[in-house]
């Protein structure tokens, strides 16, 4: 039995991700169109990587990070906004609730739906860097300075950790919103709005209050991010603090979503009629 099936025995909700994955990646089946789209995207990405490899002096590879960062947030929201809201809108939630699944299994299982797309994007990032001659050399060539002279490996871990934790946070945020809303469209808009508030509005307000103070980067994911890629003198260590913040907040949102769902799985607060 495959590793996936063993996971699925622990959390049957993973079946949803399996079915989606099989649809998009399976060799069997007849959804040729979807697979052509994937193939086309792969060709384009490979082409870009090739171009970066060949003409790295023309392309500022640091743009890979903001692009990846925005993509990760959007992909999280797009794949997860309907996770629970769609079940309510289609009125299939009741059926799901009569299956022997716990709220935790439902929420965590549905969270995995975003993982394949996010993994695909994350994999592209190091590939970009490798293509342009990665490592310390890359950072030195681009004239980036690191206040604390950390080894490139640590910087890489910080960068990827920042991207992973940002997407985790976006996933959890979307899941929490989806757990509260009845409509798919409402869930999409609200998730997107909150994501913008957290990453844009709040940092702007905080930076206007704390501008110039050293503590700001803890509150200011984008500032820490730009610090990482060399736009300010903030140390890359501060990004680890931001990673911690994002993971903790995400976990908190996840707990909230599970609580919200378990109100329904334990029957007390289920929507009623007739």
């Amino acid at each position: 039995m495959s590793l996936w099936m063993r996971w699925e025995e622990r959390n049957p909700m993973l079946a949803e991700t399996r079915i989606v994955l099989r649809r998009w990646l399976g060799l069997k089946g007849d959804n040729l169109q979807a697979k052509l789209v994937i193939a086309a995207v792969c060709v384009v990405v490979l082409g870009i990587i090739g171009a970066v490899a060949r003409y790295s002096f023309l392309v500022d590879t640091t743009v890979a990070f903001p692009i990846a960062w925005v993509l990760l947030g959007l992909v999280s929201i797009i794949t997860l906004h309907g996770a629970l809201a769609r079940e309510r809108e289609k009125r299939s939630m009741e059926v799901l609730l009569t299956t022997p699944l716990t709220a935790k299994q439902i929420v965590l299982g549905k969270l995995t739906r975003a993982v394949p797309a996010i993994t695909a994007i994350l994999v592209c990032v190091p590939v970009f860097l490798l293509a342009s001659g990665l490592g310390r050399a890359f950072f030195k060539e681009n004239g980036l300075t690191w206040g604390d002279n950390l080894p490139a490996a640590v910087v890489m871990v910080a960068l990827l950790g920042y991207l992973v934790s940002s997407s985790f946070f976006a996933m959890c945020l979307t899941m929490a919103v989806s757990a509260m809303t009845q409509r798919v469209a409402a869930s999409l808009l609200l998730s997107f709005a909150l994501w913008i508030v957290v990453y844009l509005i709040v940092p702007i307000i905080l930076s206007s209050i704390f501008w110039g103070e050293a503590g700001i980067s803890m509150w200011h994911p984008m500032a820490a991010f730009f610090a990482l890629v060399g736009f300010s003198e903030y140390s890359s260590l501060s990004s680890f603090i931001v990673i911690g913040w994002q993971l903790a907040l995400g976990a908190g949102l996840l707990v909230f979503a599970i609580r919200r769902m378990s109100r329904e799985t334990q029957a007390a607060g289920a929507a009623v009629s007739g």
């Binding site: 099936m5 699925e8 025995e9 049957p12 079946a15 079915i19 299956t99 022997p100 699944l101």
Partner: peptide, 11 residues
């Protein structure tokens, strides 16, 4: 298949 998975029917 989805629901037999949710009900933990052996693979």
């Amino acid at each position: 298949d989805y629901f037999s998975a949710l009900y933990s029917v052996p693979v």
